[in-house]
């Protein structure tokens, strides 16, 4: 094919190679999870104040209430994604050495996933009353 006739533009070489790799996706997700976290954290703080100093059976009964459990799971899920992409921005801003950056980004993913899974398993176990 004639080399002077190409449908590809130089956009092909730019797309996906910016420092963020994914355009405004994370920017927007940071806002959406931020709005959700704002609403859910109000409930979370009230719950924290209520449970503070309560005995074990009361804590279990409260966390085991399906309404509470659903809201807590939502708050933790939203927070974990919000903090994962938030910390990613911080790492991309400050960690410039390529190997260190990849390791830090990986550690961020592992940490966020672990915290999320641990909290979810605990909450689900409590609601299902094992």
């Amino acid at each position: 094919m004639d080399k002077s006739f190409r449908f590809q533009t130089s956009l092909k070489h730019a797309r996906g190679f910016g420092s963020g790799k994914s355009g405004t996706t994370h920017f927007w997700q940071q806002r959406v999870t931020g709005v959700a976290a704002l609403l859910l954290s109000l409930i979370y703080v009230v719950l924290l104040v209520k449970l503070q100093g309560d005995d074990y059976p009361t804590v279990i009964a409260t966390l085991g209430n399906p309404f509470v459990a659903v809201l807590m799971l939502a708050f933790l899920g939203v927070s974990v994604w919000h903090m994962k992409i938030g910390m990613q921005v911080i790492i991309e801003d400050y960690v410039n050495q390529p190997l260190l950056r990849v390791l830090a980004l990986m550690a961020n993913s592992f940490f966020s996933a672990l915290v999320g899974i641990a909290s979810a398993v605990a909450l689900i176990k409590i609601t299902f009353g094992a």
Partner: peptide, 13 residues
């Protein structure tokens, strides 16, 4: 801080 929340929940469970 989410670690402290997770530890507290796992302990409760």
């Amino acid at each position: 801080g989410t670690v402290f929340v997770a530890i507290w929940l796992v302990a409760a469970a």
